[in-house]
Structure formats: structure tokens, C-alpha cells
Amino acid sequence: MSVKFRRPLLLASGALLAVAAVAVPVVVGTASADPASANQPRIVGGNKASLSDHPYAVFLTDGGGNQFCGAVIVSSTAVATAAHCAKAVSKQDIRVVAGREDKRTDDGQVLGVSKVWIDKSYSDPTRGGDVAVLTVRGQFDYRPAKLPGNADARLYSEGTEATVLGWGRVADGGARSDYLRSAQVPVVSDSECRSDYDVYDQKTMVCAGYREGGIDACQGDSGGPLVVGDTLIGIVSFGDGCGKAGKPGVYTRVSEYVDDIEAQAKPRTLFP
């Protein structure tokens, strides 16, 4: 099995960061001119999406302004993303871009990052803990996604229709998307996902996708949100190809990390 993270090769701080492109159900130049975006994927089998419906969907850029991952607003001062995205670029070079559907425009906000929290158990996406929280310099003008509570366990039930969002590739090995895209994918049972991936951990991961494939997240979508309504249930993590039959996308199970995300995302107070 060729498991890939959902983000491209990046040139960060002069060092080549070799990170494979993870195939996961998710929405959403030339290689010589833009080495980061050349291997960037977008959602396979999806459609153009609107930030008016999903204002919490954001993307991350490196020091050169290249989009390399997705993320999701979880408070007025923080976003959640994949740990492998947070580790890919140094804190001082990460920028969070909010309110920009079309990456070619100057719409929305571009905020630097003041703090990076990565789950202490993380070592590799296939071993779980693929979650991070980035605290930004400033505040977002856009509403956050909702985090799942105790009453939301049903959202992880087999067959639940979820939406994955991103600016990654629209095909395995294809071109990147300039626009935010989305795709509808059903949650897959733990037993089925375990048969598809021997590394699957039902405590820290959740799968979504169609048995026949065709709709999935792709390179460049890592760190982006999987939502049911406006409730964040997953973060794009890894997969085998993009939209491959019998290989659904694997997401970080957000319900397992809610307490940590809430603690890290708590808006800063300037005065005691």
C-alpha cells in the first residue's frame, strides 16, 4: 500500500521537505516556477464551493506565498490543521489565509502565526495524532466551525453524509485548484476502513468515501475540514491515491481531540 500525506513537496527555509501526497476525499504553474504547488492536489470529483457557506475554511501558505495545506477556523484566534502540515514549514514562515475563495485574488485576511501546538503523540499520520492548532497574530473576521460534543457521536455513524473542503488537486497527479472546492462523501464504518488500511486506528481516525472511489480529497487538501453541517468531524490526513476504489480518505477524528483543540484555541486575553 502506497500511503501518501495530502500535501506536496515544499522548499522551506532552504531545505527540501519530502512529504508524500496523501490521498483523501477532499474538495479541492509550472514545476520550475513553483515547486511547492507543482505537486499540489485538490478535491477529486467535487464542485466549486462558496465561503459564504463555509467561512471557516482557510488555507496555509509558506514563506514564498505557496499554498501547501488547508486548515479550519476553530476560534477567533486559532485554526486546526494536520500535524504533518504544521511541521512542514517553520512557524515564522506560515501564513493563514482566510476569506479567499480564489487564491489568485487578494481577498480576505493573511495572518501570521504566533504559536504552534502539535499533539504530543504525533510521529506520522498513519500512527494517529495528526492534529495541530495554530494561534494567529490578530483575529479572524470569519466565524469558526463548531466542534463536536458528546451528543454528536452519531455524526460518525456509517453512511453519514459529510463535506470535505479544500484547494488541492482535482485528480491524482493533476493540476491544482485556484478555487475552494467541496465534495460530499459518506462516513465509512470502522470495520471497513480497517480492512482497507492495516494502519487504521478507530480511536484517532475516521474514513469517508465511496467504495467505487471517484470522489476524494487529494494532495494540497491536508489539514482541511471534513464537516457535517458546520460541525467539524475530521481533518484531512492521508490516503492511498486520490479517489481510488476501495481506498477511502482517512481523516483525524476530531472528537478525540476536542478538549485539546478547545484549550489551545481559547482566545487570548490581554488583561487579567
Score class of each variant (00 low, 15 high):
232 L>M: 05
235 I>N: 02
204 T>W: 00
221 D>E: 14
195 S>Y: 06
186 P>N: 12
207 C>R: 05
191 S>L: 05
219 Q>T: 15
196 D>Q: 12
196 D>W: 02
231 T>R: 02
230 D>T: 01
202 Q>K: 14
216 D>A: 11
221 D>L: 12
202 Q>P: 14
187 V>M: 11
228 V>E: 10
189 S>T: 07
223 G>K: 07
199 V>P: 09
203 K>D: 10
226 L>D: 03
224 G>Q: 11
196 D>H: 05
211 R>V: 09
197 Y>R: 01
221 D>M: 10
229 G>T: 11
233 I>H: 11
214 G>C: 14
204 T>P: 04
206 V>K: 07
194 R>I: 00
199 V>I: 13
212 E>H: 15
195 S>R: 07
192 E>G: 01
188 V>W: 01
229 G>R: 01
226 L>T: 10
207 C>W: 03
201 D>G: 15
220 G>C: 08
222 S>G: 15
206 V>Q: 09
199 V>D: 15
214 G>H: 14
228 V>N: 12
211 R>I: 01
190 D>N: 15
233 I>W: 01
213 G>V: 14
191 S>I: 00
226 L>G: 05
197 Y>G: 03
232 L>K: 00
221 D>K: 10
209 G>P: 13
234 G>R: 04
198 D>L: 09
220 G>R: 06
205 M>V: 15
188 V>F: 07
205 M>L: 12
225 P>M: 01
205 M>E: 12
232 L>I: 07
196 D>L: 02
189 S>I: 03
195 S>H: 07
217 A>C: 12
211 R>S: 09
230 D>F: 08
193 C>K: 00
191 S>D: 09
208 A>S: 09
199 V>W: 10
209 G>V: 14
211 R>N: 09
206 V>M: 06
230 D>A: 04
231 T>P: 05
231 T>Q: 05
221 D>W: 07
